[in-house]
Write a protein that binds this DNA or RNA. Structure first.
Lengths: 121, 121
DNA sequence: GATACCAGTATCACAGAGTATACCAACATG
DNA sequence: CATGTTGGTATACTCTGTGATACTGGTATC
């Protein structure tokens, strides 16, 4: 584990109440099955609705629509409509959106290692 | 962001399908409102049932009971019963449990920064 | 004797997360 | 002219995660 990060995040003396509240806040924001996969997809360069939809196995049009609306309202991303014909709709990440990069990266790492462990059994 | 980690986790050329699957696997394992707070609590030294319960704001006896059972079955933690009177039950983290440390740490970090941003408005 | 703590289980109930399917208008492609 | 794509909405449904409340049996405390 990254000792520097530990020092940065975990104040001394430890304030466990604050830590668990922070953890619960984060879970509240990115909880659910789809938020992180969507953020990941958009940060990976997917912009169009169907493009994002196709990049996430299992998601339905409805869930994607709902989550995108929600995330736009919370300024996690920007929705841009270009009046071409037919209209072009593009979703792009806000800076805020990039702040999840570390979390996502570590979760990808964990998922890969997890799969590796399962294979070894 | 940690460039070394990026190189380690994100293979070149990128395999986005593998990445999103890894991400979804991780969400599947630690998804829900309580798993990470419980892991965090136990890794922070809480061992007894009521001790863990008190350390997590909002959790009910029932949810804690269910999640602990689930996590014991998945070898995320060990349940030890000492035949004192009344019996002493202790939950302790497995090595596996510690593998979430990075994710939790980054989520705590994000939560703290999030709260800071809200205060600044 | 009343109350409180421990480690839970039982029962009931609900909201909302998530699924399935169909549909729309406008355009492009074969 | 039939089909497919885009960017969604509408409707109906399931289901499970979560919550509220109550209870148990043994012990310790007041």
């Amino acid at each position: 584990m990254d000792e520097q990060l530990v020092k940065e995040v975990l104040s001394e003396p430890r304030n466990q109440k604050e830590e668990i509240q922070a953890l619960q806040d984060t879970i509240y924001v990115i909880g659910g099955k789809w938020k992180l996969p969507i953020i990941n997809s958009i940060c990976n360069g997917n912009r169009r609705f169907r493009e994002i939809e196709r990049s996430i196995p299992g998601i339905t049009t409805r869930m994607l629509s709902r989550e995108l609306k929600d995330m736009e309202a919370n300024k996690l991303l920007k929705r841009t409509v270009t009046p071409t014909s037919p209209v072009t709709v593009e979703y792009s990440p806000s800076d805020y959106c990039h702040s999840f990069a570390d979390i996502i990266l570590h979760m990808i790492k964990w998922g890969k290692e997890h799969r590796q462990r399962l294979k070894e059994d």
